[in-house]
C-alpha cells in the first residue's frame, strides 16, 4: 500500500525540483516580496520590527498560492489525472501525497528561509522562533486549502488568478492565527499558545477535510 504512495511522492518531488518545477521559484518570490516591503513602508527599524511577522506571513501565503496553480493542471494536461482515476489508490490519498510532496518542495524552503529574511526585518530571536514555528505549522494548511482551489480550476486555462480569488478568503483564519501567534511569541498581551493551538487545529482540520474536497472536485470535473 505504501509503495505506490512513496512512488507518487518521489515523482512529485522530482518534478518540483527539476527545471521548470515550482521548487525554487517560491523561495525566490518570497525573498523578493519581503525585500521590497521596506522600500514601500520606509526603513524605520521599529516599524519593521512590529509588522515583520505579518509581512513574512503574507509573503509566505502569496508564494504558496503562486506555486499551487499547476498542482493538478499539469497532470490533467499530460493525462496522468485520468490514470489516477484508474488506480487502486484512492484519489483522496493521491491528493494528500501530492500536497505533501508539494509542501516539502515549496513550503518547507519558505520556513527555512524565513528566519534569514526575518533578520532583514529587525526581528528579535524570540520573534524569529515564533515566525518559524507558525509557518512550519501553518503553511501545510495553506497548501491543503490551496489544493481545493487548484482542483476546482483544473480545467480553466490560466486559472491561477481565479484560484487565488477562490482560495484567499479561505486562508484568512490561517493568516489571523498565524500572525497573532507569531507576534505573541515576542511578548504581548496574548499568550503564544492560545493562537498557536488554534493554528494547529486549523491545519489538522485542513489535513482531514481538504483531500476529500479536492478529490471530489477532480472527480466532478473529470466527467
Amino acid at each position: 500500500m505504501s509503495s505506490p504512495l512513496a512512488a507518487l511522492f518521489l515523482r512529485e518531488w522530482r518534478v518540483a525540483r527539476r527545471i521548470g518545477g515550482s521548487g525554487a521559484m517560491g523561495v525566490v518570490f518570497f525573498l523578493t516580496l519581503v525585500a521590497i516591503v521596506p522600500f514601500a513602508v520606509g526603513p524605520d527599524p521599529n516599524l519593521l520590527a512590529r509588522i515583520g511577522p505579518a509581512i513574512l506571513w503574507i509573503a509566505a501565503l502569496l508564494a504558496t498560492l503562486l506555486c499551487l496553480d499547476r498542482l493538478f493542471q499539469a497532470d490533467a494536461e499530460d493525462g496522468s489525472l485520468d490514470l489516477f482515476h484508474l488506480s487502486e489508490t484512492p484519489l483522496e490519498l493521491a491528493v494528500l501525497v501530492k500536497c505533501a510532496a508539494h509542501w516539502a518542495a515549496t513550503g518547507l524552503p519558505l520556513v527555512i528561509a524565513a528566519p534569514f529574511l526575518g533578520l532583514m526585518l529587525q526581528q528579535e530571536a524570540m520573534a524569529l522562533l515564533g515566525v518559524v514555528a507558525t509557518l512550519l505549522v501553518g503553511t501545510p494548511a495553506l497548501t491543503l486549502i490551496g489544493a481545493i482551489g487548484a482542483a476546482a480550476t483544473v480545467t480553466v486555462r490560466r486559472g491561477g488568478l481565479l484560484m487565488a480569488l477562490l482560495v484567499l478568503p479561505l486562508t484568512i483564519p490561517v493568516l489571523i492565527f498565524g500572525v497573532s501567534a507569531a507576534e505573541a511569541a515576542s511578548g504581548g498581551a496574548v499568550p503564544f499558545y492560545a493562537p498557536f493551538a488554534i493554528l494547529c487545529a486549523i491545519t489538522l482540520a485542513a489535513l482531514a477535510l481538504c483531500p476529500f474536497a479536492a478529490a471530489a472536485a477532480l472527480r466532478y470535473l473529470g466527467e
Binding site: M1, S3, P4, A6, A7, L8, L10, R11, R14, V15, R18, I19, G20, G21, A74, E77, D78, G79, S80, D82, L83, L86, S87, E88, T89
Partner: peptide
C-alpha cells in the same frame, strides 16, 4: 484496465525510466 489516449501520462521533466518506474509501482499494486 489500462487506458491510453492522446496524452501520454508521462512527465517531460523526468527521464523515460523514472516515468515508467513510477507507473509500474502506482498501477500494479
Amino acid at each position: 484496465a489500462h487506458y491510453l489516449a492522446h496524452s501520454d501520462g508521462l512527465k517531460s521533466a523526468l527521464s523515460v525510466e523514472e516515468n515508467l518506474e513510477f507507473w509500474s509501482r502506482y498501477l500494479a499494486q
